[in-house]
């Protein structure tokens, strides 16, 4: 009697398991279903004349425009310029943010000198500095790169500073009983312990970088994706504007994926990260 029960139960379970797997496959597919449906509705609305293509280009039109922009090199050259600006700005932010955070996180003097002004400055919306930056640095590359750098510095600084400051004091106490030098403690405990926070800061910083870039390129630029979009506005080319939006979206998505990948690689010691890497 009991054996029958067990076998029945196990069969029931295996069926349930396979059913669940099938459901999960469907679920994965389901995630793409609604975006695809939206695009289809959009296309239909444009084709039937329900929505004016002068105001909103159809998906098919956008795809064609993207292809031609790639073919004549407009998109690639503008994308190159934009990437360079964002990359340079982010690079400066990373160096400055990490340096300041370590200086203020690891020493009292540093905290007093650096933290207060940075905490005050971070409440300023960085985008409000655009007019000032144009007055100071003109309309060349400098104000654009610096605007990106300024915006991206804060998330890196704030998160890394918090990471350094919130290291478990019990671990620091332990390293003292082991007789570790200050340098060894920084290398073995503080830096690796603050790494998760630094990576969070970098993720925010990447997002901010794109945002700053969009504004910098739309206000005053001769090249770049933002400039391409502003140019298109003058000729009512919603299709080109849409291509620009698409590119920004893809860039944001890709950079986020890169940081996620870094997290999985660098934080293998976290059970969670290992699960995500698999």
């Amino acid at each position: 009697m009991s054996e029958t029960l067990i076998s029945l139960a196990s069969r029931g379970r295996s069926q349930g398991a396979s059913g669940r797997i099938a459901l999960r496959e469907l679920g994965r597919f389901r995630r793409y279903l609604s975006p695809l449906l939206l695009v289809a509705v959009w296309q239909a609305a444009c084709a039937s004349g329900f929505v004016s293509t002068r105001l909103v280009a159809s998906p098919w039109q956008i795809a064609q425009t993207a292809a031609s922009l790639i073919a004549d090199g407009t998109l690639t050259s503008n994308l190159g310029v934009s990437l360079l600006r964002a990359g340079a700005g982010f690079g400066i932010a990373a160096v400055v943010g990490v340096t300041l955070a370590l200086f203020s996180g690891l020493s009292r003097v540093g905290e007093d000198l650096v933290d207060a002004p940075l905490q005050i400055m971070r409440t300023l919306p960085a985008l409000a500095l655009v007019p000032l930056f144009i007055l100071w640095f003109g309309i060349g590359e400098t104000p654009k790169v610096l605007l990106v750098a300024l915006g991206a510095t804060f998330p890196i600084y704030l998160n890394l500073h918090k990471g350094v400051r919130s290291i478990d004091p019990k671990l620091l106490e332990m390293t003292r009983t082991l007789g570790l030098s200050r340098l060894d403690t920084i290398r073995n405990v503080i830096l690796p312990g603050a790494l998760p926070d630094l990576l969070i800061g970098i993720r925010y910083a990447v997002g901010v970088s794109w945002l700053m870039l969009v504004v910098a390129e739309q206000v005053n630029a001769e090249s770049g994706i933002g400039h391409m979009m502003m140019d298109a506005e003058d000729f009512l080319r919603t299709d080109i504007i849409m291509v620009g939006l698409l590119v920004y979206g893809v860039l944001g998505l890709l950079s986020d994926q890169i940081v996620r990948f870094l997290e999985a690689k660098l934080l293998v010691w976290r059970p969670l990260a290992r699960g995500a890497a698999r």
Binding site: K170, L171, E173, M174, T175, T177, L178, G179, L180, D184, N188, V189, P192, G193, L195, L267, W269, R270
Partner: peptide
């Protein structure tokens, strides 16, 4: 040479067990 074992293990999560053992 004095060593301490605390109530909590206080191992560094980002170092493997053997690296924790010979830390410092």
């Amino acid at each position: 040479e004095v060593s301490v074992v605390f109530q909590e293990h206080r191992l560094l999560p980002w170092k493997r067990v053997w690296e924790n053992v010979v830390l410092g």
